[in-house]
């Protein structure tokens, strides 16, 4: 590289040596033309990278498909359903009063990722726990959305891959996962219907 520059320099020098012979050095706004041309090529090359890189980002159809409507009417307390949001499982669970009480009883200081159940649910709808069904450790789907499945020591969710255990507010209590199960953006359209995303 250094060598290439040296060659370019020497040719420029030679060139200006011969200016006396009536050849004018071509400058663009005070920059030698070869420097300007190589810079322009560099700028062009960088611009070309933009479409080549951004083509790998989600396409318009993927982005558009990113809201999901979920009907809550058939979910009984203590049970939940797995919906699909952005091609990933979405846990929609109706907590029993006992589960709510258990979650509220935990002091925040005991939590790895301190959050209250209130913060993780919508106002006045504490019984609706809506989280992604994606373990925050390495992305497996935890068990426990229905009561027949292993819900772990804390009655919430249990990830069979690496043993992370979540409580009834889907907060991490034990195991390698660093964070609580993620609560996506959603809103209640009616008492029995939510729109996620």
């Amino acid at each position: 590289m250094a060598d290439t520059a040296a060659t370019a320099d020497s040719s420029t020098t030679n060139d200006s040596d011969h200016d006396s012979g009536g050849l004018r050095r071509r400058d663009v706004l005070g920059i030698p033309a070869n420097v300007a041309a190589v810079s322009a090529a560099g700028v062009g090359g960088l611009v070309v990278l933009y479409p080549l890189i951004s083509q790998m980002a989600p396409s318009a159809d993927v982005l558009a498909a990113s809201t999901t409507d979920v009907d809550l009417s058939s979910i009984e307390a203590g049970q939940g359903i797995t919906a699909v949001f952005r091609k990933q499982p979405l846990f929609v669970r109706k907590l029993t009063p006992k589960e709510i009480a258990e979650a509220d009883a935990v002091p925040l200081s005991e939590l790895r990722d301190p959050e209250t159940l209130e913060e993780r649910t919508k106002e006045g709808r504490k019984e609706w726990l809506i989280t992604m069904g994606v373990c925050t450790h390495l992305g497996c789907v935890p068990l426990g959305i229905t009561s027949e499945q292993n819900r772990g020591d804390y009655g919430g969710y249990f990830c069979p891959c690496h043993g992370s255990q979540y409580d009834t507010a889907a907060r991490i209590r034990k195991g390698p996962a660093p964070k609580n199960l993620v609560v996506p953006d959603y809103k209640f359209d009616t008492d029995t219907k939510i729109t996620v995303g």
Binding site: H18, R25, A33, A40, V43
Partner: peptide, 20 residues
């Protein structure tokens, strides 16, 4: 437009190199 501009620069640079 950018390419025409860059090609103009390339032409001047080529002329400069070959002038010798």
């Amino acid at each position: 437009i950018f390419l025409i501009f860059a090609t103009g620069l390339a032409y001047m640079s080529k002329q400069q190199v070959w002038a010798a």
